[in-house]
Structure formats: C-alpha cells, structure tokens
Design a protein around this nucleic acid. Structure first.
Length: 287
DNA sequence: GCGGCGA
C-alpha cells in the first residue's frame, strides 16, 4: 500500500505499476497506477491528518484528466471569465470538476459518481501563486500518462504497419485480454511503433549481450541497458537505417513475458508449423 | 496548521 506501509499485503492482487506522492499545502495526494486483468487504472487519494478519500480513474481517462487540469491552470491566467464546471464520462463513471473558493483560497473539486459506490471527492488547492498546486498535480498526471503508455502492451489492431502515431486514443484498456482475440493477430507481423523517451543517451553499462531474431523481413534486437532511472530491456525493430524501439523497464518484463505467452496461446492454431525465427547473439550495437 | 465536499 502507499503511504509508508510497505509490509502490509494490503488488499487486492492488483499490480502496482507506479506510485507518486504530491504535497500541496498540508494535503498529501497519492497517485497509484495499478493494473488488474481488467486493465490499468489510476487511484488518486487525498489524505489529510484526519481523512482520506479516493477516486479511481480508468487508464483511458488519465489523458482527459491531464487536459482538464491544463484547462483549469490556463483558465486562471486569463481571468476574464470564471472557469467552467466540467463533466467527464468514462465507462460507467462520471467525474465532475468544479472550481470553488473560500477564505482558504481557490480549489478544484473533483468528484466521482458511479452507480455502485457512493460519490467520492478530492479537493485540490490551487496554491498560493500561479496555481502551483494545480500545476504540480498536472505535471504528475503527465508523468503518469507517459508511464501508463509505457506499460501498455502495443495495440495489435490490424491497420497498416506503417507510421501510425499513437495519439490520444487510449482505448487499449479494459477487456483487451479476453475480448478481442478473434481479430487480434491476424497477421504474423508485429507492429512496433512506439519510441518512449527514457533518454537512452544516458545509458551506461550495456550488458554487451544482444540477441536478435528475424521474423519475415524484419529483425528485432533485444538489448539490456540502464540509465539513471533504472534497468530496461530495449527491443528494437531495425529496417535499413531506421530503428524504432520500445523501452521496457525490468519491472514490466515478467508481465511482458506473460502477455506474449498469452498471445502465443491464443494464436497457436495459426503459428503451428511455422518455422521459428532464428535467434543469434550479437555484439551490442553502437548506439 | 489548515479547509473546502456531504452527511
């Protein structure tokens, strides 16, 4: 669990992908990016000495939260008109965003209404100057949004294997494990198109061992590396002089393995009898 | 060292 209680196995088998905390005035906000078989979600808790309240944001909504916080930050720069209240519907939940003000200052109230649970609310102080509370909150949402994409298995939609930029469509969330197996992997191509900035320029201590596999016309390199943020496995698809990579923190490697195993399992009728790709060990590539 | 929310 978050908040300095590492020993307690504390409820739920959901995997914690990322935890962050933010202090605004005397409140402490906990951000927990978690995952279970239904997908990723972000748990945001507000804790004061006396109370704690929590909202649960589906992973597909993180980017909308980011947008909304950007809206409230910038809307108070040009204080011509009052910032509007907003609603955000995600799955079966509705989130309400309202700005309020009292003698303590301005605040943003975010409340979650769902059919099953009681309404729960967190209140984010704007902070004293330049809405720095909202800005800090926004920045963390941005980091978590990036991390969430990093942890997301690349979507196996069967569109052109060309330059498909992953934009704001984050519908890869719940249900992709059980649901779409019928149309998944109708091609033996693997599309690797996401390059995540983990600043691999800083990487040190390349293990010196790289592996490469060949599938159809493509080559995929597997390189262990590390930088100031930890160890990772870089998987690169190399074609000509182009290389695109995904950077997989080692914390995600086991899940990655299980996920690949899952897709091997559900496609084994198709891949049975295919000759396996050859695997070689090569020298570590020069960056 | 706070306080908003809603009961």
């Amino acid at each position: 669990m978050e908040g300095g209680n590492p020993g307690g196995g504390g409820g739920g088998n959901d995997v914690e992908l990322l935890c962050k905390t933010l202090q605004v005035e005397h409140k402490l906000f906990y951000f927990d990016l978690k995952e279970n078989p239904r997908g990723q979600y972000l748990k945001i808790s507000e804790k004061t000495s006396a109370t704690r309240s929590t909202i649960i944001v589906p992973a597909s909504g993180i980017v909308w939260f980011l947008d909304l916080f950007n809206y409230y930050v910038s809307s108070s720069d040009n204080d011509q008109q009052e910032p509007l209240s907003k609603e955000l519907q995600l799955d079966t939940k509705v989130f309400y965003f309202d700005v309020g003000e009292n003698k303590r200052g301005r605040f943003l109230k975010v409340s979650e209404a769902s059919v099953s649970r009681n309404r729960s609310t967190i209140i984010v102080p704007a902070g004293s100057a330049h809405d720095e509370g909202w800005v800090a909150f926004r920045n963390i949402l941005g980091e978590i949004n990036e991390a969430s994409r990093l942890f997301t298995v690349p979507n196996q939609q069967n569109s052109e294997p060309s330059e498909r930029l992953v934009g704001l469509s984050d519908d890869v969330g719940a249900g992709f494990i059980s649901g779409h197996s019928a149309q998944a992997a109708t091609s033996s191509d693997v599309n690797v198109e996401r390059s995540v900035d983990l600043s691999p320029q800083d990487e040190t201590g390349n293990s010196g061992v790289s592996k490469v596999i060949r599938a159809d016309q493509k080559r995929f390199f597997f390189d262990l590396g590390s930088n100031n943020r930890g160890h990772f496995l870089r998987i690169s698809e190399v074609a000509g002089s182009d290389r695109s990579s995904i950077i997989l923190p080692l914390s995600g490697l086991k899940q990655f393995h299980e996920m690949v195993g899952h897709f091997v399992e559900i496609t084994k009728d198709r891949i049975e009898g295919m000759t396996g790709a050859s695997v070689r060990t090569v020298d570590a590539p020069q960056r």
